[in-house]
Amino acid sequence: MSSKTLRASDLAQFTGSECWYRHPLYPSITYTDGAQYVAEAGGAYWLLDAIVSHQHDARVRSEPFQVWTLRVAHDRTALLTCEDGDHGMVASQAIALTDFPLPEITLWLQNDVIFLPSEY
Rank of each mutant, 00 (worst) to 15 (best):
Asp84Lys: 06
Ala73Phe: 15
Gly34Asp: 03
Met89Cys: 08
Gln110Tyr: 06
Ile114Leu: 01
Thr69Lys: 08
Trp46Ile: 08
Val60Tyr: 10
Asp86Ser: 12
Ser118His: 10
Thr106His: 08
Leu116Asn: 01
Trp108Met: 11
Asp33Phe: 09
Glu83Met: 10
Ala94Ser: 15
Ala44Met: 10
Pro117Trp: 08
Thr30Asp: 06
Gln36Val: 03
Val38Trp: 03
Asp112Met: 11
Cys19His: 14
His54Ala: 10
Tyr37Asn: 03
Asn111Trp: 06
Pro117Asp: 06
Arg22Glu: 11
Ile51Gln: 11
Tyr21Ala: 00
Asp75Gln: 13
His54Cys: 08
Thr106Ile: 07
His23Val: 08
Ala35Arg: 00
Tyr45Val: 05
Leu80Asp: 04
Ala39Gln: 02
Leu79Thr: 12
Ser62Trp: 04
Ala96Pro: 02
Lys4Asn: 01
Gly34Cys: 01
Glu40Ala: 11
Leu97Cys: 14
Asp84Trp: 06
Val67Asn: 06
Cys19Val: 08
Ala50Tyr: 07
Lys4Leu: 01
Ala96Thr: 15
Asp57Cys: 11
Asn111Phe: 07
Arg22Asn: 02
Asp10Ala: 00
Phe115Arg: 12
Ala58Leu: 13
Leu48Trp: 01
Leu79Arg: 13
Trp68Asp: 09
Tyr37Ala: 11
Gln66Ala: 11
Pro64Glu: 07
Leu97Gln: 15
Leu116Cys: 04
Ser118Ala: 12
Val38Asn: 02
Thr32Glu: 05
Val60Met: 04
Ala41Ser: 13
Gln66Trp: 01
Pro117Tyr: 06
His74Lys: 12
Gln110Arg: 13
Leu11Lys: 03
Ser28Cys: 06
Tyr45Ser: 04
Glu104Arg: 13
Thr30Lys: 11
Arg76Ser: 15
Ser118Arg: 10
Ile114Cys: 01
Ala91Thr: 12
Tyr26Glu: 13
Val113Arg: 12
Gly88Val: 09
Arg71Phe: 05
Ala39Leu: 04
Gln110Ser: 12
His74Ser: 14
Gly43Ser: 01
Met1Gly: 15
Thr106Tyr: 09
Arg76Thr: 14
Ala39Gly: 03
His23Phe: 10
Gln93Glu: 15
Ala96Val: 14
Glu63Ala: 13
Gln110Met: 10
Gly34Trp: 01
Phe100Tyr: 09
Pro24Phe: 00
Asp10Gly: 00
Gln93Pro: 04
Gly43Asp: 02
Leu102Met: 06
Ala91Glu: 10
Gly43Glu: 02
Asn111Asp: 15
